[in-house]
Write a protein that binds this DNA or RNA. Structure first.
Length: 251
DNA sequence: CTCAAGGCACGGTG
DNA sequence: TCACCGTGCCTTGA
């Protein structure tokens, strides 16, 4: 069953979309492989549109997590640094990018070239595609070694992303809180009162961020000091074909 | 002109 | 209690 949820219904309260009727059969993985009959939950607010589902059973998610721990190679050195307010920082997590050959993803002054798909990443991508009917040519892997690792508030508004395709976020490992905040309800000049939308991303879950969510809502993965185990997050994206760079008019 | 995938200081809270 | 959490701010280049 689905639940329509908005932030204002339960101010400052974490939304639990995780199905309370825990899955019991191994049907979960079989269903995921063949079609859509996943029990999707819908989360909506002004300008926000999310779909949430349990994509993998615990056993399968455990197996995938272990495989990724062996397969994924994370960036180090300057590829693991970003520039914010003019200063260079090491990102408080580990990152990797995989996808079709030649694809590049850039943000905050870093340019990350996609490595070729690993067997496990390709398998997960196929499962996500079966469940959503969407194609993806790229995945950003974020590994949070414990609750100290986190990601600050941002939007995935990169120009190279296909605006018509949702971003599909697969979570494996430790469950972590995830927070959305409307752009007009941030900072000192809060133009409007819009409650943040908070949810917990469970082991083996899939979250779809549909349009126009990334236009109006920032999201973050806040630090949670009491969490001592790692989480791997995969955000599958559709990157627009690399057109030739526009000729610069001047300079 | 706007705004930022970072850290830090600070005050409320359980 | 005091560790943790949420918020505002930083201040420079894109």
């Amino acid at each position: 069953m689905k639940r329509a949820l908005t932030g204002k219904e339960s101010p400052s309260k974490k939304i639990k979309v995780c199905d309370e009727e825990e899955e019991d059969e191994e049907e979960t993985s079989i269903a995921a492989e063949f079609s859509h009959p996943l029990p999707w939950g819908k989360i909506e607010a002004e300008g926000l549109d999310l779909d949430y589902a349990q994509l993998f059973s615990k056993d399968e998610a455990d197996r995938l997590f272990k495989q990724l721990e062996e397969e994924v190679e994370y960036f180090t050195g300057e590829k693991a640094q970003v520039k914010v307010f003019g200063k260079l920082y090491s990102v408080p997590r580990k990152q990797a990018t995989y996808g079709e050959p030649g694809l590049m993803y850039s943000f905050s002054g870093v340019h990350l070239l996609a490595r070729p798909w690993t067997p496990t990443l390709e398998h997960i991508r196929n499962t996500v595609t079966s469940a959503t009917g969407r194609s993806f040519n790229f995945v950003l892997v974020n590994r949070y070694k414990d609750g100290h690792d986190h990601m600050g508030e941002h939007r995935d508004d990169e120009k190279e992303l296909d605006p018509g395709c949702p971003i599909a976020s697969v979570s494996l490992g430790a469950a972590r809180d995830f927070v959305f905040r409307h752009r007009d309800a941030r900072g000192a000049k809060q133009r409007r009162h819009i409650e943040p939308v908070k949810l917990e991303l469970a082991h083996g879950s899939l979250l779809l961020m549909n349009q126009p969510t990334n236009t109006y809502w920032y999201h973050s993965l806040p630090a949670r000091k009491r969490i001592l185990t790692p989480r791997i997050n995969l955000t599958f994206r559709l990157i627009i074909c690399q057109g030739r760079k526009e000729p610069k008019p001047s300079q």
